[in-house]
Design a binder for these strands. Structure first.
Length: 563
DNA sequence: TCGGAGAGCGCC
DNA sequence: AAAGGGCGCTCTCCGA
């Protein structure tokens, strides 16, 4: 029985090494080499339920799948969280870098992301750890892990320390889940995708690179409508010139600007841009590259955004146009449980700031409705606009009076975001609820603000921009904390619900929304677990708060039918 | 010929 | 009506 195991796969073959550890990272006996790592890990998972410690989830866990592990500690994901906590920004985060810092060796720079991309066979996995030649990887994993636990224990404030441990655990769980979702994939009906593209764009072009029929038609109509001279509708310069030739001066080709133009060509242009984007970003080429054998497999990048939101690499999984949700259909006999957190960010603000009055409006139901009733004479749109403006740092438009109202009625909440903004303007850093740290100002920001006599207006603009960033960071990053806790809890609950090939599993995660693919007869149970996980996340992240985080959950066959 | 910058728009 | 936070992706344009 060991509470933790360090795990390092062999460079070649299915074997690997395991090192039992105590809860504080001290080795328990000698390391063990096993010829079949996946089987050995699966066995210990059942017997001990340990926390698995590895350099990076993609290198150590992905090859073990479909073995499912409950808990892990990912050194690569935890290192930047700790560096931020310690005020050491921009230092390399690989295992090798952490090891070098520990041993006083020269610290290797992180490899650029592109170096990881071609690593289809994991051939370069050992190099990606960035360990000096001849270093024993298991020894490094054990040492860096113990050091990370020590650094975590050094966080002075007990409550902050506790929350940071939650953050590291949740981030690591995110790593496990991202690897699982990449493997399982999102159900994707290429036939329906194809039909949709054909309806909108015309038949798939036979000649690769040729524009679909509808785009060619629209381009021709545009040309006629603007006087017959040929121009490329994909070229902003040529579009501006074509409109100018008809006496229409445009500041840009943005669709909101085109929408105000009273000329038939404007509407054609808007339509062209919509369809051309669909074709370029999520058309047949995308389908061939990303949606194979009934599954779309995005590559998630856990913590890829400084706020802790996930990013994806290739495939644009987090920017799929809503219309394409029609192609996401559960397998026969299965269902999709689609759940999103309603009005997550304003609720996070209420919980973060401890504003009793705002918390009351966020205690249930439609937050904006409640806000409107108490402060905006029932005008929901004003309530929403005002609150969003406060969270984003908006200053222009007619928002002034709305912000004034909010400041009067919710001084604690508004004070919270304004304090975060001031910290950012002054060059400081802010943290999320669980302790994720925002990056410091960039070097050119310092140039602009530290020499005001030369920087002048640009310096002020830059400082205000950074104020908007830190203002939004505390909310966006704390919302990401909550979402990560939700994911970890839901993942655990789904595993408890059922095992084997027919188990419900997460297939999609987008900031504040999750999709679970489940055998249809378990769908209602899954929906209950979603609600339970949201409540669990609330308690873990915000503790004693009256704010509630309701999920809007639907059980559907097709993603497009949700909500 | 390639890479970076800028524009623009998809998602939250 | 069109400003304010975070991204990824694709296109054009332009300079090395």
């Amino acid at each position: 029985m060991a509470p933790r195991y360090a795990l390092v796969p062999d460079q070649h073959g299915p074997g690997g090494r395991l090192q039992p550890l105590t809860e504080d990272g001290t080795p328990l006996g000698p390391p063990e080499h096993v010829p079949a790592l996946a089987a050995a890990v699966a066995e210990r998972e059942v017997a001990d339920r340990p926390r698995w410690v590895f350099a990076a989830t993609d290198g150590a866990y992905a090859p073990l799948l479909p073995v499912r592990l409950a808990r892990s500690h990912d050194l690569r994901l935890t290192e930047p969280l700790l560096l931020g906590q310690e005020g050491r920004f921009g230092e390399p985060r690989s295992l090798g870098a952490a090891w070098a810092r520990l041993r006083g060796l020269p610290v290797p720079a992180d490899l650029p992301e592109s170096a990881a991309e071609d690593d289809q066979d994991g051939l370069f996995a050992p190099d990606r750890l960035q360990l000096p030649p001849g270093t024993d990887a298991l020894e490094a994993v054990v040492a860096v892990h113990a050091e990370q636990l020590r650094r975590t224990a050094a966080i002075a404030d007990p409550a902050e320390r506790h929350r940071f441990r939650l953050l590291a655990a949740a981030e690591s769980a995110g790593g496990l889940l991202a690897a699982e979702m990449a493997r399982d994939g999102l159900p994707w009906r290429s036939d329906l995708h194809d039909r949709l593209l054909t309806e909108l764009l015309g038949p798939r072009p036979q000649v690769p690179g040729a524009p679909p029929r509808r785009l060619a038609e629209l381009a021709a109509e545009l040309q006629r409508s603007l006087g017959g001279r040929p121009f490329n509708p994909d070229s902003h310069g040529q579009v501006l010139r074509a409109f100018a030739d008809r006496g229409i001066q445009l500041g840009s080709t943005r669709s909101w600007e085109l929408r105000r133009v009273d000329h038939p060509a404007a509407e054609l242009m808007i339509r062209y841009k919509e369809l051309s984007r669909l074709h370029a970003a999520h058309g047949w080429a995308w389908q061939a590259a990303w949606a194979r054998n009934g599954r779309f497999r995005p590559e998630y990048v856990v913590g890829g955004v400084v706020s802790g939101r996930w990013a994806t690499r290739g495939g644009g999984a987090l920017q799929i146009p809503r219309i394409l949700r029609r192609a996401v259909v559960a397998d026969p006999g299965w269902s999709l449980v689609v759940a999103d957190a309603a009005q997550l960010e304003p609720r996070v603000l209420a919980a973060l700031s401890g504003d009793a009055s705002l918390a009351r409006t966020a205690a249930q139901g439609d937050l904006y409705e409640a806000l409107a009733a108490t402060a905006f004479h029932g005008d929901r749109s004003k309530a929403k606009l005002g609150l969003l403006g406060a969270m984003y740092g908006q200053t222009s438009g007619d928002i002034g009076p709305l912000l004034a109202t909010l400041r009067r009625r919710y001084p604690a909440a508004m004070g919270y975001v304004e304090a975060a903004a001031r910290t950012g303007e002054d060059g400081g850093v802010v943290r999320s609820r669980l302790g994720r740290t925002c990056p410091p100002p960039s070097a050119d920001w310092l140039d602009l603000t530290e020499a005001p006599e030369t920087a002048g207006e640009a310096g002020g603009r830059s400082a205000r921009a950074r104020g908007r960033f830190t203002r939004n960071f505390v909310i966006q990053a704390s919302a990401a904390d909550w979402a990560l806790a939700l994911l970890a809890a839901l993942r655990r609950r789904l595993a408890a619900l059922s095992s084997g090939a027919d188990r419900p599993h997460l297939v999609f995660f987008q900031h504040d929304e999750v999709v679970v693919h489940t055998p249809a007869d378990l769908a209602d149970r899954v929906a209950e677990e979603v609600a339970g996980a949201a409540e669990e996340a609330r308690l873990l992240v915000f503790g004693d708060t009256p704010v509630r985080f309701p999920m809007s959950t639907t059980v559907v066959d097709c993603y497009a039918d949700a909500k």
